[in-house]
Computed example of a mutant assay.
Amino acid sequence: MRVAIAGAGAVGRSIASELLENGHEVLLIDKAPTAISVERVPQAEWLLADACEITSLDEAALQRCNVVIAATGDDKVNLVVSLLAKTEYGVPRVVARVNNPKNEWLFNEAWGVDVAVSTPRLMSALVEEAVSVGDLVRLLRFSHGDANLVELTLPPEAALVGTRVGDVEWPEDTTLVTIIRGTRVLTPNKDDVLEAGDELLFVAAQAREEQLEQLLSVQRQGATG
């Protein structure tokens, strides 16, 4: 997979290193000469250019990229890069960094963003995830379909403890993607039995989050199934 990253600061370089370790082809783009530190990520391609200019993106051959990541420290730049990547070059997947949470509402499909990653929101979500049991925690927002990656740790008093996954009537537009049980990561199947303390990860429509939280955390009369 070929990935172009706009912004070769600490964030961009870290992402590049992870992707390279996983066998992907990475191009780092930055307009600041001081940011071009080839020795820090020698396996990557480097381009000294302004990622907001069409001529620069032509030079980067953005049409050949499977993913573009807008990872600069400027939200305006990240939005422009995202829009150009999607509309001018048809990049299948565009991921954008949100620096100021107040701007998060802009990072959507209209600006070419498929996935918006807000560092402040993600950090607060990880704190909540570490200490919350029975509360739904939003970890990541996907622009397409208005869906979110959400997590809930199943409390001992939840009615669904002891229930088979296949017997639960999950809300519409909701998919259980992973069960984290201790040190194990489980791909859920219909015969898996939910246990207290399970960390459940869902991709769910935002409109279904309240319904999902009630299903998992509120003691109800009688179990599903």
Rank of each mutant, 00 (worst) to 15 (best):
114 D>V: 02
221 Q>T: 08
181 R>D: 10
198 D>M: 02
178 T>P: 00
157 E>S: 03
97 R>A: 04
137 V>R: 00
211 Q>K: 09
125 A>Q: 07
134 G>Q: 01
164 R>A: 15
118 S>V: 00
134 G>H: 03
99 N>Q: 14
144 H>Q: 15
193 V>Y: 10
195 E>G: 02
216 L>F: 01
145 G>I: 08
147 A>D: 15
147 A>T: 06
221 Q>C: 08
105 W>Q: 06
78 N>R: 07
31 K>Y: 10
126 L>I: 14
41 V>F: 12
214 Q>T: 14
170 W>H: 00
48 L>Q: 07
101 P>M: 04
123 M>V: 15
47 L>P: 13
48 L>R: 11
16 A>N: 10
71 A>L: 05
141 R>G: 10
70 A>F: 05
120 P>G: 07
180 I>K: 10
180 I>P: 01
70 A>S: 13
130 A>E: 06
21 E>Y: 05
68 V>F: 02
79 L>P: 00
141 R>T: 02
3 V>W: 00
12 G>V: 10
151 E>P: 01
64 R>S: 14
108 N>F: 07
96 A>N: 03
215 L>Q: 03
137 V>L: 10
4 A>N: 06
187 T>L: 13
107 F>P: 01
3 V>Q: 04
89 Y>R: 03
168 V>I: 08
12 G>K: 08
126 L>S: 11
87 T>A: 08
171 P>I: 05
118 S>R: 01
62 L>I: 02
220 R>W: 00
173 D>Q: 12
105 W>K: 06
43 Q>D: 10
166 G>L: 13
222 G>K: 04
19 L>C: 10
106 L>P: 01
143 S>C: 12
40 R>V: 15
153 T>S: 04
91 V>M: 02
73 G>I: 09
129 E>Y: 05
156 P>G: 06
116 A>Y: 01
20 L>M: 05
68 V>C: 07
33 P>M: 13
98 V>Q: 09
110 A>E: 09
187 T>Y: 04
144 H>W: 15
147 A>P: 01
201 L>S: 05
214 Q>W: 15
24 H>T: 00
113 V>I: 07
202 F>L: 08
122 L>F: 12
124 S>V: 04
37 S>C: 14
179 I>V: 14
216 L>D: 03
154 L>N: 02
151 E>R: 10
77 V>S: 10
99 N>W: 02
38 V>K: 07
177 V>H: 00
186 L>H: 06
12 G>E: 09
135 D>F: 15
172 E>T: 13
99 N>D: 01
185 V>W: 08
118 S>T: 01
140 L>H: 02
44 A>D: 09
19 L>S: 07
29 I>E: 03
199 E>I: 04
119 T>A: 15
86 K>A: 14
168 V>W: 04
108 N>G: 13
222 G>S: 13
79 L>A: 09
65 C>Y: 00
38 V>G: 11
160 L>W: 04
208 R>V: 11
53 E>S: 06
